[in-house]
């Protein structure tokens, strides 16, 4: 295409290196550095299976964080995810114990999660209440419902679920993953496609970039805002299903504080908490970094598990500061 530029000259974007990828690249570099450092320091660390194990142990977190990414990209926040995960394990375990077959159980759990999310989204949009408060209410509600169902942990012995828990899918060279990882991978792929290649996905970015502008550009604001909370609800419910595969139990105290892990993963993945900027790949990397921190701390026998929280907090601080600098420079 040859466009003769007339007077005025060619206006170039001042930054040629795609600055939008910088946060994701930083997270990726962090991951690689941690992996390399671990490999140097500990024997038997730098193997593919270590990375796969991180996926296996965090498949549910990954799915939940995908939902959270949608919400945060649209400029919101969802505090209810951990409770919805717990509620989902509880419903699944109870129904399975009552002799329900697994497909309708899973279907029902996913439906309930989606409805919860959609409902919160509707309240947020139509009654203009801050997402923080509405999803806080949702958090209490879901946690309360799971306690109401039962306060004890309910074991799951249903064959399909145990099969999902125990199956190893062998890859090449002794590497293996669990079916949950496969499901999480599918979720990530679908979500990435939706965010990048569909109008809904682009509208999420637009709404996060500025609700008023999105509205004036004629984008369906209500539908988009409600949809992201619905998606987050669905992902939390699916995360709950994966967690019941992993734990083989339903328990009201499952996934306490998981909303924080999910938010941390999204932020460390380079997504701006103010919305409108970030990538799903970043969230995947964020979950990997969180998981790898745990792995490193478990390899480092003398370090106690609570260092995980401290390191996550520090990382959060560094990344938020980085974001702040980037947005300040842009202005």
């Amino acid at each position: 295409m040859s466009v003769e530029s007339t007077a005025g000259g060619r206006l170039k974007a001042p930054v040629r290196i795609p600055q939008k990828f910088v946060p994701v690249l930083v997270t990726a570099a962090l991951f690689v550095a941690m992996f390399a450092a671990g490999g140097v320091r500990y024997e038997g660390f730098a193997t593919g299976q270590i990375v796969l194990n991180v996926f296996i142990d965090n498949a549910f977190l990954l799915v939940v964080a995908v939902g959270m990414t949608f919400v945060i990209l649209a400029g919101g926040i969802d505090l209810s995810v951990g409770s919805v995960v717990a509620l989902s394990t509880m419903i699944a375990a109870t129904l399975l114990k009552d002799g329900w077959p697994s497909p309708p159980v899973i279907g029902l759990v996913l439906l309930i999660g989606t409805l919860l999310g959609t409902g919160m989204g509707a309240i947020i949009h139509y009654f203009e209440i801050q997402p923080f408060i509405v999803t806080l209410g949702g958090m209490f509600l879901a946690r309360g419902l799971s306690y109401t169902i039962g306060t004890e942990s309910i074991p799951i012995e249903q064959p399909t679920f145990t099969a999902f828990a125990q199956t190893r899918i062998d890859l090449f060279a002794d590497l293996w993953i669990s079916p949950s990882v496969l499901i999480a991978a599918v979720v990530v792929a679908v979500a990435a496609y939706v965010l990048h290649y569909t109008r809904l996905g682009r509208n999420v970015y637009a709404v996060g970039g500025g609700e008023q502008s999105a509205l004036l550009m004629g984008l369906p604001l209500a539908r988009t805002k409600i949809a992201v909370y619905g998606i987050s609800g669905f992902c939390s419910a699916l995360g709950g299903v994966l967690m019941s595969f992993y734990m083989l139990s339903g328990y009201g105290m499952h996934a306490v504080g998981m909303e924080l892990d999910a938010i941390a993963a999204v932020v460390i993945g380079g997504t701006l908490l103010t919305g409108g900027s970030g990538y799903l790949l970043g969230t995947v990397l964020g979950v990997l970094v969180l998981g790898l921190i745990q792995t490193v701390i478990s390899f480092e026998g003398t370090l106690s598990p609570w260092w995980t929280r401290i390191v996550i907090g520090l990382l959060l601080f560094v990344f938020i500061l980085l974001q702040r600098l980037i947005t300040a420079r842009r202005r």
């Binding site: 923080f132 924080l260 106690s304 609570w306 260092w307 929280r309 401290i310 390191v311 996550i312 959060l316």
Partner: peptide, 21 residues
Amino acid sequence: GIQPIIATLILMVAGRGLAQL
């Protein structure tokens, strides 16, 4: 100039670890 929710989230996450430390 960090949003209060986010700024205090940092200590919310790290603080539990500090307490256990």
